[in-house]
């Protein structure tokens, strides 16, 4: 089979056909800092560094995307929240900026043009687009309006809001939707190929499916319809099987699958309607031997690869800093070994 470039490979699998090999997204957002020999905080302070890191990582590991994603709490910074940096892990959000639910009544969404912290990410996407020549998908990320409140309020107060304050909840969703749509479309305008709609609260791990259907699903349908490009919904290690029907109807083209789910079962449920991204266990990955890593990759390809509609990746959307470069290379080599279409009988069950 003719060798495709990454864009062709990904588009083919997303149309539920088999490309030349299984595409893989090595979402090592932090490892670029190691490539450049700078600290994590310093790395994310300049778009040019993130671009250099992304390009070096792709040159080394031969994966099929570039990412303009910096870190989740970047968005919360735009809302006035605090970002905490660590030397050995992703930046995390500090105290939630909304201390009281009543603050929602007077809340206004930040405008992208005024949110300078987001401009670095947009600049990185622009530069990646310039330098990749359209042959590699560039991923943008937008936290869903339904999941952003975990950082805006904290998990517990957000649960209280959903269960006890329906009017304030609806108001917060309306505000967050405006922000999410503007942020996602700004990334598409800057050159992102697709948006990862990061929606962990949607997962049945976090909310009962019937409550999701009445709340987050409605938000997703409204929001995804206004985002002017393809979206992939990521539940950040949360299970997806229990809401597969809803996800398939939400307007998304792909779903992130948890390591706690059987990829073959999820693939059967997706039934060609949405593609799957996953589901290597990023937390365990740190301890995998070379043989284990190869087996995990082979197993995921066996369960998810046949017929396309599958992109191999970790299950969280961010590979931990503690995963070694050698292990990433083993994963890359294993995809090239086991992921060639047509899958060999030993690979495809």
């Amino acid at each position: 089979m003719k060798t495709s470039n990454s864009m062709e490979r990904v588009l083919t699998t997303l149309s539920h056909q088999e490309p030349d090999r299984v595409p893989f997204f090595l979402l090592a957002t932090l490892h670029g800092a190691r490539e450049l020999g700078v600290g994590i905080r310093e790395y994310f302070s300049r778009a040019e560094q993130v671009v250099a890191g992304q390009l070096r990582l792709r040159a080394r590991y031969r994966h099929d995307c570039l990412s303009g994603f910096f870190f989740g709490p970047l968005e919360i910074e735009a809302w006035g929240g605090e970002v905490l940096y660590y030397d050995d892990g992703p930046p995390n959000s500090g105290e939630p900026p909304l201390r009281e639910l009543e603050q929602i009544s007077s809340l206004k969404p930040p405008r992208i043009a005024e949110a300078r912290c987001l401009h670095r990410s947009l600049e990185a996407i622009r530069l990646l687009k310039q330098q990749s020549g359209g042959e590699v998908p560039i991923l943008g990320v937008a936290i869903s309006p339904f999941s952003l409140p975990v950082m805006q309020l904290g998990f517990d107060r957000y649960f209280d809001l959903i269960h006890e304050r329906p009017e304030l909840f609806q108001r917060l969703m309306a505000i967050n939707e405006e922000f999410c749509v503007e942020w996602a479309n700004a990334q598409l305008d800057a050159g992102a190929t697709a948006i990862c709609y990061f929606d962990p609260v949607a997962s049945p791990t976090i909310l009962p499916p019937e409550l999701y259907e009445a709340t987050g699903f409605q938000v997703a349908r409204r929001t995804l319809a206004r985002i002017k490009g393809p979206t992939a919904t990521h539940l950040a290690s949360g299970r997806c099987l229990g809401i597969m029907e809803l996800l398939a109807r939400s307007g998304t083209v792909a779903i992130g699958v948890s390591a706690q789910e059987n990829l073959a079962e999820v693939k059967a449920a997706a039934a060609g309607r949405v593609s799957l991204i996953g589901n290597l266990n990023g937390i365990e990955m740190r301890r995998w031997s070379e043989a284990e890593a190869r087996e995990k990759v082979r197993e995921a390809i066996t369960r998810g690869g046949a017929g396309g509609g599958f992109i191999l990746a970790d299950n969280h959307g961010e590979i931990p800093w503690q995963v070694s470069d050698e292990l990433l290379m083993t994963i890359s080599d294993a995809v090239l070994t086991f992921g060639q279409y047509p899958l060999s009988p030993g690979v495809s069950e």
């Binding site: 649960f159 791990t205 009962p208």
Partner: peptide, 14 residues
């Protein structure tokens, strides 16, 4: 149940 994926974190919380 939550460990098995049969209920949600929000239900545990409430």
């Amino acid at each position: 149940k939550w460990e098995r994926g049969d209920c949600a974190l929000s239900q545990i919380y409430v």
